[in-house]
Amino acid sequence: MEFLDFGKHTSYVLSAFSLTLVVLVANVLAARSKLSSRLTTTRRRIASEDKT
């Protein structure tokens, strides 16, 4: 695990990079889930409009 060693600042460097990763991944998941839920709702609405 030498590649994760940043001397006396290891915990600070790793926590800053880990937090960044979490925020980036959360951004992607939130955007994708919003788009997919709205796509599902729109498709359902269009399908119900077509039936009527």
Binding site: A31, L35, R38, I46
Partner: peptide, 29 residues
């Protein structure tokens, strides 16, 4: 680039709601 990708995805989701009932949306889907 990350911002651009996430922004485009979020704007598409916004467009879906704002274009409710429009013909082009039905065709696009």
């Amino acid at each position: 680039c990350f911002f651009a990708a996430v922004l485009l995805t979020r704007v598409r989701a916004e467009v879906l709601v704002r274009s409710r009932g429009q013909k082009w949306l039905k065709q696009a889907l």
